[in-house]
Design a protein around this nucleic acid. Structure first.
Length: 291
DNA sequence: AACGATCCCTGTTGGC
DNA sequence: TGCCAACAGGGATCGT
């Protein structure tokens, strides 16, 4: 599913296709995909005919700046992806929103599960809508001091706070697990129980993991829809140390990777490299205890 | 305020 | 073999 590396890969492809170009036409085939605009038709009304100045990103949001105080915003959600194709390309079943570019190519927002969305916001609306999104985990990571302050006193599992886009934005379920194994920290550890040293180590692994993800074009899981906009599969899958490797040996110590539920999400970890001291375990729901 | 639970949605999967 | 419930998860929202 798209997390920061997948969104960044998508951003780069989109930038290539639309920077300096004008969006001629917007076709909304599923209105649910347009959100946080007053009405679905606002998307076309606000975007069509405008030129794209630049394509940026914050966390998992793609933010394209258009002329005349307008931002074209895309969030891929869980199963969303962009396809950049020629107009004669066979239409995708789940191409929910289609953007015709003056270059002749089409940008298609394909999203079977429709957890993603797209919108057109003014700068003020964008600021409002992103007010609770924290700094980008890769380009603007918060300092250890800031993160320590956010963790202090919190009984929630550290993984829950890594997934909290308000602390920093970009990590999702896969990369959160991948950062935690590298830091040797159990996902269910209470965030407030981490030492300053552990927080520093944790933060130190975030950049390199995300960079490696981008380097390999992101992670394409067998059963999920994420593909690069040119149709290629991301190849970070083969470099995952814990995610999706339940029962397989830890690459560090050989202990079978375990899986449990933490913060209502699957969590993968090595019980030996990421010990969970009962005294430091975070809040665990009934679901977590049952497993 | 903090945190857990639930919902949205649909392609895939696993169990019977 | 075939059917169907369970599952996957980012984020909003609601209840405690």
């Amino acid at each position: 599913m798209p997390e920061l590396p997948e969104v960044e890969t998508t951003r780069r492809h989109l930038a290539e296709a639309v920077t300096g170009r004008t969006i001629d036409r917007v076709t909304v085939r599923r209105e649910r995909m347009v959100r946080r605009n007053e009405r679905p038709s606002d998307l076309s009304d606000r975007i069509a005919g405008r030129r794209v100045v630049s394509v940026g990103r914050r966390g998992k949001f793609v933010l394209a700046e258009l002329e005349e105080d307008m931002w074209w915003v895309i969030h891929l959600g869980m199963s969303g992806r962009l396809r950049v194709v020629g107009p004669d390309d066979p239409m995708d079943v789940h191409a929910n929103v289609i953007f015709d570019i003056d270059s002749g190519s089409q940008v298609r927002f394909v999203d079977p599960r429709t957890f993603g969305f797209t919108a057109a916001w003014t700068a003020d609306e964008t600021a409002l809508n992103l007010a609770r999104i924290g700094p980008d985990a890769l380009n603007d990571p918060p300092s250890a001091e800031i993160v320590m302050a956010r963790f202090r006193g919190r009984r929630a599992p550290v993984k829950a706070l890594l997934l909290d886009q308000g602390v920093m934005s970009g990590l999702g379920n896969i990369y959160a697990d991948e950062v935690l194994i590298r830091a040797g920290i159990h996902p269910a550890r209470a965030a407030g129980s981490l030492s300053a040293e552990e927080v520093s180590m944790l933060l130190g692994h975030i950049g390199p993991v995300l960079e490696a993800g981008i380097q390999h074009g992101g992670t394409s899981l067998d059963d999920l829809a994420y593909l690069l906009p040119d149709g290629r599969a991301g190849e970070y899958l083969g470099r995952l140390r814990v995610y999706g490797r339940t029962g397989e040996p830890c690459l560090e110590c050989g202990t079978p990777i375990e899986r449990s539920t933490v913060a209502q999400r699957s969590a993968h970890f090595c019980p030996r490299c990421q010990p969970l001291d009962l005294a430091t375990r975070g809040a665990v729901g009934a679901e977590g205890l049952a497993r």
